[in-house]
Amino acid sequence: MPLTTTAAQMVADARARIEEVETKDLIAQLGDPDLVIVDIRDIRERQRSGAIPGSVHAPRGMIEFWVDPDSPYHKPVFDQPGKRYVFHCASGWRSALTVATLQDMGFAAAHLREGYSTWADQGGPVAPHEPKG
């Protein structure tokens, strides 16, 4: 059975209605105490290529539950009034879909348009993955 909507079309539809942040602009905002950068990549991606220093790791499969204050999986990092949340994945596809879904839930967020793929090339600092003990 052919698909009625492709993944690429879903990403394009999401991007048409969410805020996208350019890599250079997010790099310039590092250190802003009101900024929360959320990395939704798989843990193995973080292990291979590092992470944006200070970013919060929230696996894509759990994000709706971590954001929802009524969920038993809710994480307080997502309940900080006045904070600006910017989500990212590797290339901007998963984060676009994530932010569109969160927007549908009433959670304000943006995403890194090109994802982590251009971060280091554009001068963004990279922290090695440090497993939690």
Rank of each mutant, 00 (worst) to 15 (best):
F87M: 05
G115R: 02
P59W: 12
H57P: 09
V67E: 02
S71D: 07
R46A: 03
F78M: 06
G54E: 03
Q29N: 06
L97G: 10
P59G: 14
D34H: 15
M105A: 11
Y116E: 05
V36T: 15
D104K: 14
T5L: 13
V36Q: 12
A8F: 10
I27A: 02
D32M: 12
A108W: 03
Y116T: 07
A7V: 14
A110C: 04
M10L: 15
Y116A: 08
L102V: 09
Y73K: 08
A109N: 01
H88N: 14
F87T: 03
M10C: 08
I43K: 06
P128W: 12
I37T: 05
I27F: 02
A90D: 12
H74V: 12
I63C: 06
P2T: 02
P2W: 02
V86K: 04
G133V: 08
A109V: 03
P76R: 07
S49T: 13
T101Y: 09
P128A: 14
P59V: 11
P76N: 05
Q9M: 06
C89R: 00
L102S: 03
Q9P: 00
V38S: 00
Y116N: 03
S49V: 08
A96C: 07
G123F: 11
E114P: 02
A110H: 02
H88I: 09
A109R: 03
D104T: 12
V77P: 01
Q103G: 12
L97F: 07
S95G: 01
M105T: 11
A110F: 01
G123I: 13
R46W: 07
D68F: 10
T5W: 07
G61Y: 10
G124Y: 00
E130F: 13
H88G: 06
M105Y: 11
E22D: 14
H57G: 04
Y85V: 14
G123P: 10
T23L: 05
Y73C: 02
L3M: 14
R84K: 15
G50W: 02
D13I: 07
